[in-house]
Design a protein around this nucleic acid. Structure first.
Lengths: 236, 236
DNA sequence: CGGTAGAGTCAACGGCGTTGGCATAAGAGT
DNA sequence: ACTCTTATGCCAACGCCGTTGACTCTACCG
């Protein structure tokens, strides 16, 4: 078997598999995304991916060091899609907000994949590009370096943490997800008011709000705070 | 085998295993936490847990419907420990802050377990108790129901999302974690200033800040915002 | 138009969650 | 104190899983 994985750029011969497909990192990652969507976040297995590709499972080890390596490549793909779907306007607050939402929705577009990768930090190219972009927006907007780094840290971790949390909820099977959402109208809405007065009093509001993500609310709070600090620093 | 799991309260006979241990849900959950700590977040297996308990793996199915059910019980235990370590003072902002930090640090105290459970919502008793507590603090502080629910939602999801994110980082093996932290002094600090001017300019600040959690900063931002809204509503 | 080594295949290993059938001893009822 | 019932733990087995080493074949280099 492969002593070490051949980097994609150095790959020369493209021998088709028995079933005729010609493999590539790109094809494998995209097929993995499809398998994840169809079989859930725990449904990506070497055998299944091999079958989906029309190749022997062990062939994957010619392209990735193991399933863990493949997982990181999937995460990098999600981050890349977020960056591609975003464009700068020059208005720092709007740009940051849009970038955060782009990252969030890129992950939510592949919830099963996101649940697998969102808490991994890889240091791969597209991830670094996102970091450079965020820091650039903040420093160009006039934040001093210390404030920019502090805000960058809060921004990126907040976005990734919510991407993981919300993706985890979406990645459940359809029935499990429905059960979870209904929990606010079934379990929580029926708790006795004597023991749980506050939940009982707000049950209707909870059922309306909890199925949505809190990310936009928290993100806006963070950006409002940053804008206020920037304005007051300019005045003072 | 067990058609269905016998609830812990209805359990009568406590027959010791061949190796002499007397099982219980509590013992199993606590042993599972130990196994997770020793073998990592993917190291909890039915066979290993059975060995650690001195019991056959299949015996676990007398207590839990499957490994997934056990996982939820572990999450419930973490939430319970958070609630136990917290006490109210009556000052809403301080109480909320302390509760958030209690949840966060309860999860981080068992990072391998947290990585497994933080994004699950179970609707079990201790979890409901936490929800009731938070809503109680907010409504007693004078927030109208709509604002209380909005803030509750942001608060709990923020806390769980960061618990999961930060636990994920801590749950890596010691060497992998060290490698990740050093990435800010190795990879990021050495990126060429021509291609990555903003990262290069702030490399030292990044290396100092990134290994810590952004949770307290974001939590305080959220609570500051809430306090300001409450004060202005009182004035208006 | 060979020779070579890289890409795909095959078979196997040990470990996983889970199940059905079975032995046995704890506790209820007398 | 004795029996009876059945909850509880054990065993063996099933079909998955990731991964590996030895292999075959074929695309490309010269």
């Amino acid at each position: 078997m492969a002593k070490q994985v051949v980097p994609e750029s150095a790959r020369r011969r493209r021998r088709p598999t028995q079933q005729g497909t010609v493999l590539s990192e790109r094809l494998i990652v995209h097929t993995a995304l499809r398998v994840l969507r169809e079989h859930g976040s725990t449904g990506l297995t070497a055998r299944r991916l091999g079958t989906a590709l029309g190749a022997d499972p062990s062939t994957l080890y010619r392209y990735f060091a193991g399933m863990d390596d493949l997982t990181r490549a999937i995460g990098e793909e999600l981050m890349g899609q977020a960056l591609d779907s975003w464009s700068a306007t020059g208005e720092w607050r709007a740009d940051l907000r849009a970038l955060g939402l782009a990252i969030h929705s890129s992950y939510l577009a592949h919830p099963q994949a996101a649940a697998l990768t969102a808490s991994r930090v890889t240091g791969r190219p597209r991830e670094i590009a996102v970091d450079e972009t965020i820091l650039g927006i903040l420093r160009t907007a006039g934040f001093p370096d210390a404030a920019a780094v502090r805000l960058y840290h809060a921004f990126i971790d907040l976005s990734l943490a919510f991407a993981a949390l919300d993706a985890g909820a979406l990645a459940l099977t359809e029935e499990a997800r429905a059960t979870d959402e209904e929990m606010w109208t079934s379990t929580y809405a029926r708790l006795p008011a004597e023991s749980y007065p506050h939940i009982a009093a707000t049950a209707r509001l909870l059922a309306a709000r909890m199925p949505h993500s809190a990310y936009p609310v928290v993100l806006d709070t963070l950006l409002d705070d940053a804008a206020a600090r920037l304005a007051s620093a300019r005045r003072g």
